[in-house]
Simulated scan of single mutants.
Amino acid sequence: MERTLVFSDSSLNYADTRWDEVFQPLSNTCSDLDASDFPGARRDQLVVRLGAARGFLAHTPFHPPAVPADLLPTVRLFHGAPLAWWVGQVLSYLMRLHPRSDQLVRAALRRLNFTRPIVGIHVRRSDKLFHEAEYHAVDEYMAAVEDFYETLEITNGGVARKIYVATDDVSVFDEINKKYPDYTVIGDRNISSRASGKTKYSKEALDGILVDIHLLSMCDFVVCTFSSNICRLVYEMMQSLHVDASTRVTSLDWDYGFTGMRKLRLYRVILQHSARSAEEMNMRRGDIIAVNFYNATNNYGYNLNTSESGYFPIFKTVEDAKSVPFPAYPYV
């Protein structure tokens, strides 16, 4: 929209903490302005107020799965998930750590002896199980962890197996230590104990989340559930730490998606497919397949190039993004 974003209400949901007490300000020169309410605001109005993302961004062409048209062709050459790459670039700027937060993360790295190679797991329990997600046993997480290390050992020989555990259920540490004694388990039990119940929105809990998110993003591989905001955020942050981190996370439930994302997922065909039944559809290399966000696992979609619909082999596609002409700011 070619406007400057200013956080006029920068309080977070944690103990009345301000954004600029945790992260660096978006700008050192742009300060708060009196703003009019956004719906109904004219485009020529000097200042407009944006509400919650779900209530506003979904009505603009720039909302995910949109990626800038001038960047998308290049990103497709080196990255398996252009949307995650683009969101990751934005978030890596928005979430630049305040010096105190940066010291907190660095201290945790030293205290926990965080060394690589290492796999991170994020096990979300507590209220998540009752409202949004299904239960996943520790063994499901560890199966993916073991696959990673077995693959790594093919080229690197024997390596020390280490995992970083982030969870809101302290018992997860004991279960992994008991069942998988060949692994070195690191993590902060105090962070886990503060991540649920009455302390969930305390300043100490926020510090714990900051540590968990950043240490998970620094892992070589992460096993988690994309139904969790934390898991998706870690995946997005990893995109700014690697050329292509699209295969560095395994989700035990949902596919990746941005919060409030439009309900269509886009897949680009990389291998031609001829329908083998009336229920399938033909696909040519380069075709774009649209799939309902909540039915992606059914592999049923609509071919935007041929107007044909039906089931399709998703392994012959890669998730794609929507090419949208973002402002390029040529005068900057």
Rank of each mutant, 00 (worst) to 15 (best):
S196A: 10
A195L: 12
M281L: 15
G157Q: 09
L210K: 03
F226A: 03
N292P: 02
N292R: 13
V67E: 01
L215H: 02
K179G: 00
T155R: 14
P99G: 04
Y164R: 03
V47Q: 05
F293P: 00
H98F: 02
L104G: 00
M95W: 12
N229Y: 11
F62P: 07
I270M: 10
L77P: 00
S193F: 00
L83C: 00
I186S: 04
S202N: 01
G301E: 05
S10P: 07
H59W: 14
I154T: 14
Y331H: 14
A35P: 01
R42K: 13
H122E: 05
L206E: 03
N156C: 09
R3D: 01
F78D: 03
E175C: 10
D168W: 03
H59F: 15
S323M: 05
S307I: 02
K162I: 09
T199D: 14
T297L: 11
S277M: 07
H79V: 01
N229Q: 15
D220N: 13
V249D: 06
L71T: 07
D70Q: 13
E204Q: 13
Q24D: 04
A296V: 13
Y135Q: 05
A66N: 03
G301M: 07
V145T: 12
I118V: 15
E308H: 04
E2V: 10
A84N: 09
D287N: 11
Y135K: 06
N298S: 14
A160G: 09
M95A: 06
F114C: 09
D37E: 14
S193E: 12
R285T: 14
R194W: 04
S240E: 09
R232T: 11
G55T: 10
V249A: 11
K263N: 14
D34R: 10
F62N: 02
T259C: 08
N28D: 15
P327M: 08
E280A: 07
Q103G: 11
Y135L: 09
V123M: 03
P39K: 08
I191L: 04
N299H: 13
A53W: 11
R54G: 15
E153P: 10
R111V: 03
V172T: 15
I121S: 03
L216E: 02
G260M: 12
E146H: 13
R124I: 01
A107S: 14
L271E: 15
Y331G: 07
P73Q: 11
R265K: 14
G187A: 07
G157K: 05
Y267F: 15
I270T: 13
D188C: 06
E140A: 15
D212M: 02
L57F: 10
T115I: 12
V6C: 01
A137W: 04
V6E: 00
Y183T: 05
L94W: 15
P25I: 03
S101G: 07
E132I: 14
L129R: 02
L264S: 13
S192W: 07
Y256K: 06
Q45I: 00
G80D: 08
D16C: 05
T29V: 13
D182Y: 08
F315H: 15
I288E: 05
A296W: 06
A278D: 11
T247H: 12
